[in-house]
């Protein structure tokens, strides 16, 4: 099916929940209302003509400079049955990003959504186990947001980029056991 046909099928079923469709993009995408994404996901998987049984990628994108500031969640779908792709997008406000989970439709969404939560702070309602996946459990903040500032310390370890070794050495700090020594180890016997 062409992307236009896929979009028409979605529009026929969900009407108002499909907000817009961009067919000129390299990967045509449809914008979906956040509340409806779980039903749309179940529909695109179950409907025989669409058959999107594979979620290729779920990403979050941060747009703080747009009006209103928003977070996008992008779903790249693929159908093994019919060999076609499609993209769904969901836009949520940046200060309270809540999206229903699609974990029941595609099992891999469990981990993808945990990552989006971890790095962007998008809360997925209904997720079975929404906790941090890449960062430590006691990490504060969501680093991939555009307004992220590195903290000074994390549990006593320096987080901000530190001056490089040569600068530290030039400033007089004793690094390791001594200065860099490039003499080869296998000197002839009479010199050792």
């Amino acid at each position: 099916m062409t992307p236009q046909e896929i979009h028409d099928a979605l529009k026929a079923r969900f009407g108002e929940a499909i907000l817009s469709f961009d067919e000129k993009a390299l990967d045509p995408w449809a914008l979906v209302k956040p509340e409806a994404i779980a039903e749309v996901a179940a529909f695109v998987k179950a409907e025989p003509a669409l058959g999107f049984d594979n979620l290729m990628c779920l990403s979050a994108v941060d747009w703080p400079k747009e009006t209103p500031p928003r977070l996008d969640v992008v779903y790249h779908l693929y159908s093994y049955k019919h060999d076609h792709t499609f993209v769904l997008k969901v836009q949520v406000p940046r200060d309270n990003p809540r999206v229903p989970t699609v974990e029941g439709t595609w099992g891999v969404a469990n981990w993808h959504e945990r990552e989006a939560f971890d790095l962007y702070g998008v809360v997925f309602d209904g997720h079975s186990d929404l906790r941090r996946i890449l960062l430590p459990d006691d990490w504060q903040g969501h680093p991939l947001r555009k307004d992220w500032e590195d903290p000074e310390l994390y549990n006593g370890m320096r987080v901000k980029p530190t001056p490089q070794m040569a600068e530290r050495y030039a400033a007089g700090e004793k690094i390791g056991v001594g200065p860099f020594d490039f003499t080869p180890p296998n000197l002839p016997l009479e010199q050792s």
Partner: peptide, 28 residues
């Protein structure tokens, strides 16, 4: 291996997301 690249017209990418095959393999 999937690359999702978002560009806002600048020199640097706006967003690069990598869909790595091993990530999804661990999820099962």
């Amino acid at each position: 291996l999937g690359y999702y690249v978002v560009s806002d017209g600048g020199i640097n990418p706006y967003r690069v997301k990598v869909k790595s095959p091993c990530f999804t393999a661990m999820s099962v």
